[in-house]
Design a protein around this nucleic acid. Structure first.
Lengths: 220, 220
DNA sequence: CGCTAATCTAGAACAAGTTTCAGACTTGAT
DNA sequence: ATCAAGTCTGAAACTTGTTCTAGATTAGCG
């Protein structure tokens, strides 16, 4: 029988979180395990904040989080998994923060653009961290699909929140997907120095106009 | 003084290619060097076609192309550089091919969507190659910016071609950028198995509607 | 308490990208 | 034809992600 295994998963920090955006708490973890996991994620974010993707070296993460290399790999089967998990973690924060002060815009498109720009500003404060997370996200192969999908759902939830929609139409979901595409890709161009902050802003605002197209009289 | 160094760059295969999409032929190469370069790109594409990004191993590329490892690195300073160059190469082909049979759609949005779907179908024929190229492209860091930018310009040219525009407005260029974002990101979701081909099609068609937004009476 | 299975640790080992180096080869110029 | 400078080769070395192993620990159970 298992050794460390009990304690309830203490997710759902933010009140009524949609089940679709809550991580599927697979095997419940011991307190010590939960603590290890947090230490690892913390070390990962910290190293990433310093030097971006390259600075997150597995041996360093292991050392910083006081865990053996093998253990690190037991928790996160690859560097990409680790960074995607780090992103999930950060996104949860972000979503919580964004919920508190909902965007002010009149129309849905404006609110979404405002929300994304707010998120973008947050990323600008830790550009290296953003680099590590976004690079990992787009570099992830099939073996990380579930986790990446989770991030995607969380992002979708944030956008739908901003739109103020309960039951989006298929067309609106398409628009949201395209917005997400633009969001990710625009971040990449910014991170690799091929687009300015202003440029990203324009792209976001441009793509958000798609929302008007799917619901000319959009509001809640 | 330089040793191997002369011969004119024999780019511009396709007649009147816009200067903005022509590689800035830096130091002209010897014929033997040009041949080496081609062998390398060929080996790269071949290995990529087999097993995607991971199958393109620098030692293997070197061996396949009958070049020493050090030489390979002299031509392409990193695996990412190599794969991005491979993409440039493939894109040139693609653009040439696409030029021949221009899209039929009435409206600009339709023509762009049709063109991109055509390109998408081409990629589907070599999914592993697509994987290698696209992953490299989005993973590229600042050191590869010039090359990635070149790919971006080439892509822009293809889209503008499909739109049939000579002097796009700033607004239209924004739309094109957003379309490119969507194109790249949608490819990624497809390659990582998180979106179906049908899904990609919808996303492309959705984003192309932005064009109508910037030019309601769009045509040539 | 004492047992058993799972987990953790330290460290070696392996894989693939990248760098380095000494010597052989080419090239353009004298 | 010869020379100087730049290029190519083959091979070793180095780096960092990933895997493997043997032994120490920990957790849950009777």
């Amino acid at each position: 029988m298992p050794a460390e295994a009990q304690v309830s998963a203490k997710v759902n920090k933010v009140a009524k979180v949609d089940a679709r955006v809550t991580a599927p708490a697979s095997p419940p973890l011991t307190e010590r395990q939960e603590a290890r996991r947090r230490r690892i994620l913390h070390a990962s974010a910290q190293l990433a904040s310093r030097g971006g993707f390259d600075a997150v070296q597995m041996r360093e993460v292991a050392e910083s989080s006081q865990v053996a290399l093998g253990t690190l790999y037991r928790y996160f089967p690859s560097k990409i998994h680790l960074l995607v998990a780090t992103m999930q973690d950060q996104l949860e924060h972000m979503h919580g923060t964004l919920r508190k002060k909902p965007p002010q815009g009149e129309k849905a498109a404006e609110r979404v653009a405002e929300t994304l720009m707010r998120a973008f500003r947050a990323l600008q404060r830790e550009p290296h961290l953003a680099d590590a997370m976004v690079r990992a996200l787009t570099f992830a192969d099939r073996s990380v699909s579930p986790e990446v999908d989770q991030v995607s759902r969380q992002t979708t939830a944030i956008i739908l929140d901003a739109m103020g929609l309960e039951n989006p139409t298929a067309e609106q979901l398409s628009a949201v997907r395209v917005i997400e595409h633009t969001w990710h890709s625009a971040l990449i161009t910014w991170l690799s120095g091929r687009a300015s902050i202003a440029q990203v802003k324009i792209d976001i605002e441009t793509v958000c106009r798609l929302i008007d197209l799917t619901a000319p009289d959009a509001h809640e």
